[in-house]
Each structure stands twice: as C-alpha cells, then as structure tokens.
Design a protein around this nucleic acid. Structure first.
Lengths: 224, 224
DNA sequence: ACATCACTGTGAAAATAATCTCAAATATGT
DNA sequence: ACATATTTGAGATTATTTTCACAGTGATGT
C-alpha cells in the first residue's frame, strides 16, 4: 500500500520528535552491522513497538528476523529528517544566551550554521564573534535574503521580541526558534517554536512534587 | 464530586505545561479585574474550552457569567505550580551555556535560584561568577546537601554527562534539567528532563518543509 | 421578582496516540 | 530441504487527550 509512496498523510507530531531521538542514538552506536528495535528501545527508552511503528510511517527499513542495518537506517533517518541538507540560520540577540548559542556545538552536527548575527548594541555591531559578523537589526532584510536564511534563533530581551518577529515577517524568514520567555504572536507566514527554559524547570519541579498523579512514562519526559 | 478534594487522579501531562503558559500570560496582563477563558485563549493560543478544562483538573476558579478574577487566578496557579516556593538549584558545567544559564533572568522570576556552581576546570574553581562560588565536582555531595538542593541544571560536555548523573544519584538530587545533547540514563531516584536545542531546531526545519502533513495546531508548537 | 445575558464547568463524543498481537519474512542450523 | 528461532510490519485494540455542546450559575438591568 504505502511502500515509500511519497510522504504518508498523517504522521503523529510526536513520531517525528522521536525519530530525532532514534537518529541520535544510532549516531552514538558504533561497531555493529545490525540493530533491532529492541536494542534501540533500550537506548532511547521508547518501546520497541513504538519505534517500529514510527519508522513505518516513512517506509519499510527493517529485515524481519534480523533488525535494521545500522548505517542504512542512519542514512534513511538523516534524509527523512532533513539533516542531510545544510541550513543557514540567523541569530538575533547577542547577549549571554546568544553568545552561548553561537558556540553551541549541537547545532553544527545537525547541519545548522549560524551565518548572520544581529544585535542593536553599537558596541557589538561591526564586530566579529566566532567568525560571524554582527549586523544592525535595521539590515535584517538585506542580509537574510543575501544568505538565503529561512530560520532565525531569537534570544533578545522580552520587550523587543514581538517587534522583531513583526519585522522578520517581511524578510523571507519562515521559522523562528524562540528562547524569549514571553508570549509571542507569529504572523501567518512564520512558524514559531518556543523553548522556555524556565517553564521546563518549573515543570520538572512540579513533577518532582507530584509524581503520584503523573504517569511515569509521560511524554514530556521521554520525548523532549 | 471533585471539588478541590486534594489533587485529582489523572492530570494530562500537557495540561500542567499549559498551566505555566496561562500563568505567564496572566502575569503579563494588567489593569483588569476579570479575565474570561476566551480572552486568555487569545493570549495563549490555546482553545477556551481547553483552558477551562485544564483549570478544572485543579478546582473551580471561575465565576459563571463573569470569568476569572485575574489576581485570584494568578494566585491559584502560582500555588498549583509551586512557583510560590523558592528552589535552590545547582548548575553543573560553566562553559558558554552554563554562564548564560547563570545569568538567565527567566529562572529567578519563577523562584529558582542558582545556589551552587560546579565545574572541573581548575581555572574556574574557587572563583565567583555572578556572586556564586564555583566548586569542584568532587564536592557534589557536601555542597548539595548543605544548601538542600534538589534540582541540578546540567550543561557539561557530552562525554562527562552520564558519569555526573551517576554521581548525582547519591547526593539527594531529585531532578535534572539536562541541556546535554546526549542520551542519558537516569537512575530510579532522579527525574530527568531533557532540553535538546538542536532537536528543536531540527523539528522546526522539518516542520517548515513538511507543513502539509502536519496538523496546524500541533502540540509541539503550541505547548512548548 | 423576573428575564436576559455571559460565561463557567463538565459529561459525552471525537480525535489522536500508544500498545498489543500475530502473521509474514528472513536467517540459521541440521 | 525442512524445522526453528528471530524480528519486522501493521491491523486491531486500548488508552489518552482534545473538542464539542449545553445545562447550570451568577450577574445585570428593568
């Protein structure tokens, strides 16, 4: 029926997130030709059945009686998740968090490269950090289009965030990874994904004090 | 039936996460006595019905025909989420990300205070950063117990992460907010919550290139 | 006092996601 | 060539979460 025929219709949002987890676990695995869903289950703490089902949303990659060929599966996941292609991203805001994100190794390994940095501090504009030139925010459009940037990482003070998102709308940016702990409203043409570290910490503490009423295998704790 | 009778049995994990969102939106609201689920819906992009249902997991806070008294609801959420109490947390790893987390304002506003910092760089040990003393990791137990710390934020190199988690097990730490992009296995007595910034970025790019096959109102994008 | 309006709280229905099961497929050993 | 052991793939089942729809409730105006 659905043997690799393009992209199937309904893929659970969570399945994709888990696929990234599987991918990472596979990348950490070395020196074996084959890996079974059961082994991968132990590595990721996802059930073997779930792993198999998640994979079948995208095709048939396994060999019954054997398992999955490690390198082949890595390759498939890399393609499915789009990690094979490189992305140029813009970093907006070069405060403490911004500087940390600029040097963050994790982005590079997934093909993300910070190609442009924006700030509105005159002291920083014109400087280079980690080899990347810092531009004034008034030059958003020109630079984002010049580098064909589709994704922005936002780490600015809360008061500035909404205005920046509004401005980004006209630049060709299609997605924003937002670290600003403030409720932002994104225009239609932009996808906004929030990482709120304070909320995560709050969630952890809530969970610690209320573990009884919370299913042990909560998604929040397995898939994040 | 279940009128404030302690904590109800089954609360969806996501409901709690959304409660944090509601709380933040309320904190950003000023100058009105009452707010309706409909107004809060516009602020948070969660449906009004969902807001009402989420709230009723914890009690009845509204007034039919009116809405919710803003200050009273803030207070209730603050209590439910445990934001009224202060938490001392430990920061492990004082690299670029660690330093950014040390100065992150978002934690403070939710009652989290970084009371101890650990690193194994001799250059940093013994120094003060942001007024907090940096200790050697060999002194985990003593310091964590002295400050009655229950939560650790981990931002160390991937190779060290698992070993540190193993060590934390004996210190009284009950929860870890992990920023290390590596599959960590936590012992029974520790709750591990991962924030993988690279995966989030990957998820965003996947979503951008596959928006058709993805429900617009995906949880991953609304509740994070 | 009564009618009207507005909005909550909640059971029921729908949608979504996870788990269970097992037939089918493949390798391995005899 | 056949029996056995293993593991996938996927339909069926179960569980969970969200949405729907409206009865019930408090406020307001006449």
């Amino acid at each position: 029926m659905n043997k690799n025929s393009g992209v199937p219709k309904k893929i659970p949002a969570f399945a994709v997130k888990r696929l990234f987890l599987y991918h990472r676990a596979l990348m950490e695995s070395r020196g074996q030709e084959i890996i079974s869903s059961d082994e991968l289950s132990r590595l990721t703490r996802c059930s073997a059945a779930q792993i198999r089902k998640d994979l079948t949303y995208f095709g048939q990659f396994g060999t019954p009686g054997r398992g999955y060929y490690l390198e082949a599966l890595k390759k498939h996941l890399t393609e499915i998740l789009g990690i094979n292609q490189d992305w140029s991203v813009a970093l907006i805001g070069l405060g403490n968090l911004g500087r940390a994100l600029l040097t963050y190794e994790g982005f590079k390994t997934q093909g993300f490269k910070i190609a442009a940095v924006f700030d509105n501090d005159p002291e920083k504009i014109g400087m280079r950090y980690q080899g990347v030139f810092v531009s004034d925010m008034s030059r958003f459009k020109k630079i984002i289009q010049a580098y064909n940037i589709k994704i922005a990482i936002m780490a600015v003070p809360p008061t500035e965030a909404q205005e920046i998102v509004n401005q980004l709308s006209a630049t060709g940016i299609e997605g924003i990874l937002n670290f600003v702990p403030y409720q932002i409203h994104a225009p239609e043409n932009i996808r906004l994904l929030n990482i709120d570290m304070a909320i995560e910490l709050g969630l952890l503490s809530y969970h610690m004090t209320h573990s009884e009423s919370w299913s042990e295998q909560s998604d929040l704790f397995n898939n994040n």
